[in-house]
Write a protein that binds this DNA or RNA. Structure first.
Lengths: 205, 205
DNA sequence: GAAAAATATTGAATGGCCTCATTTTTGAAG
DNA sequence: CTTCAAAAATGAGGCCATTCAATATTTTTC
């Protein structure tokens, strides 16, 4: 039988996630009421809260998917980065930015970020922060890789500069999701300009 | 007569702000209900909304005060910075961090940041973003000043690096307000470590 | 297979931000 | 001092995320 209860549970979970993602993308996060999501998923409001602690937790699944995908794409670049520092950073960062709106809308990103900041003692926030940390480490890993290949001054503190580069790209990403008119290409160019001078100093010779 | 109406208006406005700040600081932003604030200010809930558009707008007044104070203190440092790049940055950043909890609690900061991100098309967000921009410019101004005094390589792109340094200190400030256990001194030290390697590269000779 | 226990579902009720139709107060004009 | 229009105050009501006591379904036990 494989457990009727377990099957129903998995099924409802999926229906809720599908309904939520669909509504978030079409009518928007704020406009999608729990009641609507529950109705599309053919479940009661109360049942929704047996599956998720808060409305925001529905975002978490999508954010996680998006960031995991981005991290995986980033791995490929860290493994075989362009030789030039500026180009390597641009490749990694561009990969982050270009993948950022596959599943999430800007409104969803804004909500997720706001939740992560506003309620730090929350599973949501802890998970979001953890994903952020993995991205930060990936940037540091890229610098270390370049250093290992002799494309970056040996005396560079890759952790310090990696953190700074990551925090900068992350803050610029916040500006990006705050501005509906800004495209990923715009963002990439702005950050490229900021990284340029630093990359120049980091290069060998 | 000087206008009874105008006097009453100013008076109620002040009472509302005082009541809100007091409650935010004592019971917390979330726990302070509009009804409570209105009651302390001896005003009805409806009247509150004649004076402020949202609960969050009560934060804006305090955030503005805090940031304006910080900007002024920062001016003094930009005007007469320590000779060493690292020390100059540490002085300015320390000034920001040390002043940051005079009027606002970490919870209030978190709420303000969350609101600024979540609803960018809001007077609140626009104002918050503008204050951020002025801080960013001040960091850039410090670099330019140091460069003018010959304490920083002439070929440095002060805008690019200033933005990056600011975005880093701002993101670290977000981590700070997310973590109740972190002190301003902790934060200052962490950012000092991040800035150190960069400062070393920026120094003359 | 019936009864009991465990596990889930349900939707009406709660709490808190914000709105708005109504009432009250102020100030100007006659 | 009335009268009246403009400006402001009021609080009941709407909305929506979340909770919880009652009900229903699945699983286990005998």
């Amino acid at each position: 039988m494989a457990g009727l209860r377990a099957r129903q549970k998995a099924d409802r979970n999926r229906r809720l996630l599908d309904a939520a993602l669909h509504l978030f993308q079409t009518v928007g996060y704020d406009a999608a009421r729990i009641e609507d999501i529950a109705e599309v998923a053919e479940v009661s409001v109360g049942t929704f809260y047996n599956y998720f602690q808060t409305k925001g937790d529905l975002l978490l699944a999508t954010v996680t998917m998006e960031v995991e995908a981005v991290l995986e794409a980033g791995e490929a670049i860290v493994a075989a980065p362009p030789a030039d520092v500026a180009q390597a950073l641009d490749a990694l960062i561009g990969c982050y930015y270009d993948h950022s709106l596959v599943w999430l809308t800007k409104e969803m990103w804004r909500t997720a970020m706001a939740l992560a900041i506003q309620a730090p003692d929350t599973p949501f926030s802890r998970r979001y922060t953890e994903l952020d940390g993995r991205l930060r480490q990936q940037v540091c890993a890229l610098l270390l890789r370049l250093q290992g290949k002799g494309q970056l001054r040996a005396d560079t503190d890759c952790t310090a500069l990696g953190e700074m580069i990551f925090n900068n790209l992350n803050m610029m990403f916040i500006e990006f999701v705050k501005d509906d008119a800004m495209t990923p290409a715009d963002l990439r160019q702005l950050v490229g300009r900021q990284n340029g001078p630093l990359a120049a100093m980091l290069r060998m010779g």
